[in-house]
Amino acid sequence: MSKKKKQKRYRLRTQWSTLYVAITALFFVSFGFFLTSKILFADSLDVLNTELGKEYNLNSNGKFTINDWIYDEDSNQMQVTLITSDMRSYLSELDFKSVARSNLENPLSTEVVYSSNDIYIVNIKEVPKNFQQVSLRLLKNEVDLSEDFKEENQKINEKDNLITSIYADQSVVKREEIKEGDVRDYAIRVTNKMIADTENQRENIELEIESKELLIEKIQEEISKLKGELLYQTLEEQTDTNNNIYSLEKEISTINREIEEMKVDIESLKTKKVRLEQRINDLKF
């Protein structure tokens, strides 16, 4: 074998050896970074936080709105205010269970500090400092009229009466002092909040009605314009224009129906506000 061929083969072996060493080194560096990054950078969690002020429809299980959810860091407590509708009856009652994501093995203690007229204020106690996320489970406990005749070991499975779960995330939950108060104070505070929310709803609907009425004016202007062009059009063009006019008039009728429905909603909200104000007066009496 010639000297040149030997030198060429040697260089190839050297290049492959260098490449192998580089790849091996890169692998170990990457693996080392992966291990240390798990220590240096905590795993990030997706935000899990049920929206406040939004009505959730659970169909046959009723509706609910989270009026407020606050976290008191000093007392390690949370307080959740729920406005419910058709979630309980004379044969059922709501119950609440809670757990923190950071310690799933130990449920958190809950206490219903106020319950009246489908309003619930629930305190969650002993919340860990680094709770990550807290779940509050809403359960429906059915009243069993024959329970006196059942064996002690016949219990309802929690999974069977779970209605839904709601969540607070450590990154976005509202931090505020939880003020102790009696039942009347709770009732007045929640009712005042409901009055303010009711008034906001009414104002928003009135703004929406104004917007729809302006839209009707624009459509009517377009109809007048199209009717003015009919005189100068061919029969075929008139047919198309009349179809457009019919469609626009139909749209006006639809919008007017929506406005009438909104006006009914406004009257309902006004009635609701009057009743809530009466509740405040009764509580203060």
Results as ranks from 00 to 15, higher is better:
residue 240 D to Q: 13
residue 63 K to G: 00
residue 159 K to I: 11
residue 237 E to F: 10
residue 72 D to S: 11
residue 6 K to H: 10
residue 148 D to N: 07
residue 226 L to A: 08
residue 256 N to V: 02
residue 158 E to Q: 14
residue 98 S to P: 05
residue 37 S to K: 05
residue 223 I to E: 02
residue 147 E to A: 08
residue 265 D to T: 13
residue 115 S to Y: 12
residue 101 R to W: 15
residue 14 T to R: 13
residue 142 E to K: 10
residue 213 E to W: 00
residue 148 D to V: 01
residue 210 E to K: 05
residue 112 V to E: 14
residue 160 D to F: 15
residue 107 P to N: 09
residue 178 I to V: 14
residue 235 L to T: 14
residue 148 D to Y: 03
residue 91 L to S: 14
residue 53 G to F: 12
residue 225 K to D: 15
residue 240 D to K: 14
residue 12 L to F: 15
residue 233 Q to C: 07
residue 115 S to T: 13
residue 69 W to C: 10
residue 136 L to W: 07
residue 6 K to N: 13
residue 250 K to N: 14
residue 237 E to D: 14
residue 285 F to E: 08
residue 132 Q to P: 01
residue 283 L to S: 08
residue 110 T to H: 11
residue 32 G to Q: 00
residue 241 T to E: 02
residue 177 E to W: 10
residue 114 Y to K: 03
residue 256 N to D: 06
residue 249 E to W: 04
residue 74 D to L: 10
residue 270 K to G: 05
residue 51 E to Y: 09
residue 204 N to I: 05
residue 28 F to Q: 01
residue 73 E to Y: 08
residue 231 L to H: 11
residue 99 V to M: 07
residue 158 E to H: 12
residue 189 R to C: 00
residue 108 L to M: 12
residue 133 Q to C: 13
residue 76 N to Y: 05
residue 195 I to F: 00
residue 184 R to D: 09
residue 251 E to I: 01
residue 103 N to D: 11
residue 227 K to V: 14
residue 259 I to R: 02
residue 48 L to M: 10
residue 119 I to H: 11
residue 218 K to N: 12
residue 243 N to A: 12
residue 85 S to Q: 12
residue 85 S to N: 09
residue 126 E to A: 07
residue 190 V to S: 05
residue 141 N to C: 06
residue 47 V to D: 06
residue 102 S to P: 09
residue 255 I to C: 03
residue 147 E to V: 07
residue 87 M to C: 04
residue 90 Y to R: 10
residue 19 L to V: 06
residue 204 N to W: 03
residue 72 D to C: 10
residue 191 T to N: 01
residue 154 Q to C: 01
residue 180 E to F: 07
residue 76 N to H: 12
residue 224 S to W: 10
residue 127 V to L: 04
residue 4 K to A: 12
residue 271 T to W: 00
residue 102 S to V: 07
residue 254 T to M: 10
residue 23 I to D: 06
residue 238 Q to G: 06
residue 152 E to T: 03
residue 149 F to R: 08
residue 284 K to S: 05
residue 252 I to Y: 01
residue 130 N to H: 03
residue 248 L to D: 00
residue 283 L to H: 03
residue 242 N to I: 04
residue 278 Q to E: 15
residue 10 Y to P: 04
residue 30 S to Y: 02
residue 29 V to W: 00
residue 168 A to H: 04
residue 42 A to S: 11
residue 229 E to F: 11
residue 108 L to T: 11
residue 53 G to Q: 12
residue 162 L to E: 10
residue 223 I to W: 01
residue 145 L to T: 09
residue 96 F to K: 11
residue 191 T to L: 00
residue 231 L to D: 15
residue 115 S to P: 10
residue 5 K to P: 03
residue 168 A to E: 04
residue 129 K to G: 06
residue 161 N to F: 11
residue 121 I to F: 03
residue 59 N to T: 07
residue 8 K to D: 09
residue 228 G to Q: 15
residue 191 T to P: 00
residue 254 T to W: 05
residue 224 S to N: 15
residue 242 N to E: 07
residue 147 E to Y: 04
residue 185 D to L: 02
residue 208 E to S: 14
residue 189 R to S: 01
residue 40 L to E: 02
residue 249 E to G: 02
residue 75 S to H: 07
residue 84 T to L: 10
residue 79 Q to I: 06
residue 49 N to Y: 13
residue 156 I to H: 04
residue 131 F to M: 03
residue 131 F to D: 02
residue 245 I to C: 04
